[in-house]
Computed example of a mutant assay.
Amino acid sequence: MFIRSERLMLRPIFPEDWRELFAGIADESVVRMLARVPWPYTADDARRFCNQPRGVDEMLFAITLPGEDGAPLIGTIGLAPSEPETAYELGYWIAPSRQREGYGSEAVGAVLATARALGLREARAGHFVDNPASGKVLRRWGFLPDGQLEQTACAGRGGRRVPALRYRLSLAD
C-alpha cells in the first residue's frame, strides 16, 4: 500500500532501504525515544528490520520526501494490532535532520485517515515523558490521554523501565 500526503509518500519498506534507514535512526537521540529499538543500533539491525516479514494486519511504511533528487527515507511509521483485538498501536520516528518540520505529524494524519478508510476502530499510542513533542503530535490528531503513566521497557536505554504516557483514539468517529 502507498499513501500520498501533501509533502510525503508513505510506501512499503524494501530490503534495499536498510542504508537510508540506518542513516536516519542510528542516532541515540532517536533510539532512546523508541521502546523496541536497541542501542547501539547497527547496520545488521537495519538489514534485519528491512527484511523481516510483516503481519497481514500490520501497516508499516517508509516515510519518504519526494523531490527533484529522488525521495529520501526520513523515517518510518506503522500501525500494528495490539490488545484488545480491535486496537492498533501507532509508532513512528523521524530522522533528526528532518525533525521539527511537521513531517511526523503529517505522516500520522495520513496513516490515521487510511486506518479510518479501512474500518479500523481504535488506535493507541504512547510516548516517554521526556519526549513531549510526540505527545503534542498525538493530541493534534485527537488522541486522548488515558490517564495512565506506564513504566515501559526501553531497549534503547538498556532495557530500563521509563515512564510513558498512554493515549487512545477512536477511529470510528
Results as ranks from 00 to 15, higher is better:
residue 154 C to Q: 04
residue 77 I to K: 05
residue 116 R to Y: 02
residue 63 I to A: 00
residue 119 G to N: 09
residue 105 S to L: 04
residue 140 R to G: 13
residue 132 P to N: 15
residue 72 P to M: 10
residue 66 P to N: 06
residue 133 A to S: 15
residue 68 E to V: 09
residue 149 L to D: 07
residue 93 W to K: 02
residue 49 F to A: 09
residue 133 A to I: 12
residue 122 E to V: 13
residue 60 L to D: 12
residue 61 F to D: 02
residue 58 E to D: 15
residue 67 G to V: 04
residue 101 E to M: 14
residue 107 A to K: 00
residue 50 C to F: 05
residue 57 D to F: 08
residue 67 G to P: 03
residue 156 G to C: 10
residue 141 W to H: 15
residue 95 A to V: 11
residue 91 G to L: 03
residue 91 G to W: 02
residue 132 P to K: 15
residue 126 G to K: 04
residue 91 G to A: 13
residue 54 R to N: 05
residue 152 T to Y: 00
residue 118 L to E: 14
residue 59 M to W: 10
residue 76 T to A: 15
residue 138 L to F: 01
residue 126 G to T: 07
residue 108 V to E: 02
residue 63 I to H: 00
residue 120 L to R: 11
residue 78 G to F: 09
residue 113 A to D: 10
residue 114 T to K: 09
residue 100 R to Q: 12
residue 95 A to L: 07
residue 96 P to G: 07
residue 108 V to W: 01
residue 41 Y to R: 01
residue 104 G to Y: 06
residue 80 A to M: 14
residue 93 W to T: 04
residue 126 G to P: 04
residue 52 Q to L: 10
residue 130 D to M: 00
residue 91 G to S: 11
residue 63 I to R: 00
residue 161 R to V: 09
residue 109 G to Y: 09
residue 141 W to D: 13
residue 90 L to I: 13
residue 142 G to A: 11
residue 48 R to P: 02
residue 122 E to G: 06
residue 129 V to E: 15
residue 145 P to V: 00
residue 119 G to I: 10
residue 144 L to N: 05
residue 140 R to Y: 13
residue 82 S to M: 15
residue 55 G to Q: 12
residue 139 R to L: 12
residue 122 E to A: 12
residue 116 R to P: 02
residue 76 T to V: 14
residue 106 E to A: 11
residue 80 A to N: 13
residue 102 G to W: 01
residue 79 L to N: 01
residue 46 A to H: 09
residue 114 T to A: 13
residue 131 N to R: 08
residue 75 G to K: 05
residue 80 A to F: 13
residue 40 P to K: 02
residue 101 E to V: 05
residue 157 R to C: 01
residue 65 L to S: 09
residue 142 G to L: 11
residue 81 P to D: 08
residue 55 G to P: 04
residue 129 V to F: 14
residue 56 V to F: 07
residue 146 D to I: 04
residue 46 A to G: 10
residue 127 H to G: 10
residue 153 A to W: 00
residue 112 L to K: 01
residue 97 S to V: 11
residue 81 P to M: 11
residue 155 A to L: 12
residue 116 R to K: 14
residue 152 T to V: 08
residue 150 E to A: 09
residue 122 E to Y: 13
residue 64 T to S: 14
residue 157 R to I: 02
residue 116 R to M: 07
residue 141 W to I: 15
residue 46 A to F: 07
residue 123 A to L: 00
residue 47 R to G: 07
